[in-house]
Simulated scan of single mutants.
Amino acid sequence: MTFQPARDYEFILQVKDLVKTYPNGTKALKGVSFNVPKGAFLAVIGLSGSGKSTLLRCINRIHEPTSGSVIFEGRDITHIKEHQLREARTKIGMVFQHFNLVNRRNVLNNVLTGRLGQLENKFLGGIFQKWPEKWIEEAYQALRIVGIEDKALIRADGLSGGQKQRVAIARTLMQHPDLLLADEPVASLDPSTSYSVMNYLRDLNQKHNITVVCNLHFLSLVRDYSTHVIALKNGELVFEGKPTDITEKWFKDIYGADAREVEIH
């Protein structure tokens, strides 16, 4: 039996009592629960080490949750077989802080790897780069969406950080995802490039109806781009609401009494 999303669901993603304890005893997540409406742009905030990255990796099952449930499009994906999980993941895109590109390959082939999950012979496509012509056309379209179609035949190691992140977004577009997880996608970029990348993520959210869950550090970006916010502290959910709900008191509760907000321009 293949993975099939439920026909009717109120939330595209539901996280219920999620716990993640690592083998060394570290409790990265302590019973986290929240819901994500379809079409939302959810920002996840909190200090480094609060559990943000672990949360995203548990959602797409890069990390196996210790307990709790992840429900995607109305179906529990924490308790499904491996082949069903692979199918579910084709609808969940992931953008990482450090891009995860193959530097020795050109941009086009990096983007095309977003379709490996749908290729019958992954070895043929992944190693010898024999891609269906239709997919090549789609890859160029994805690069056009993020504004770097002219870089298609350049090796990935010849790009700037912002360009590499746009390639990573284009690669995710090849999956035709319903949900995009972005783990600190602008943390290693300069301020102007950060806004450029965030603009592309917002376009995917608003123009392509892709729900986004994005880990962010800067509250200025949270206020500018997100529709919903949750905050983690020491592996626990300590805030859930709208960007405008984050008062000075909430900021101090989340980041500490001595914390000062830093704007990114």
Rank of each mutant, 00 (worst) to 15 (best):
P5K: 03
A40D: 15
Y200S: 09
F96V: 05
I136V: 13
L55M: 02
K91Y: 12
Y200A: 05
A139L: 09
A152C: 11
G235K: 06
F128K: 05
G158L: 13
R105V: 02
G39Y: 10
G46H: 11
N106F: 12
T227Y: 00
L85T: 04
P243S: 05
H265W: 05
D245R: 04
A168Y: 01
L119G: 07
D150C: 07
D157Q: 10
N205L: 05
V222P: 04
N60F: 15
E248C: 07
G74K: 01
M1W: 03
G158P: 05
G241Q: 10
L56E: 04
H63A: 15
A187F: 09
G126I: 09
I145Q: 02
L180F: 08
L29D: 04
L216R: 02
N103Y: 11
L216D: 08
K134R: 15
I92Q: 03
T113P: 03
H79C: 04
L173E: 08
H228F: 04
H63K: 06
A142I: 14
F99Y: 15
L237R: 08
K20W: 09
F72Q: 00
I77M: 03
R89T: 09
L153G: 05
N103I: 08
N199C: 06
L29F: 00
V102H: 09
L101Y: 15
H265Y: 06
V15D: 03
A152Y: 11
T66N: 13
T90W: 06
T193H: 06
P132S: 13
Y195G: 07
K20C: 12
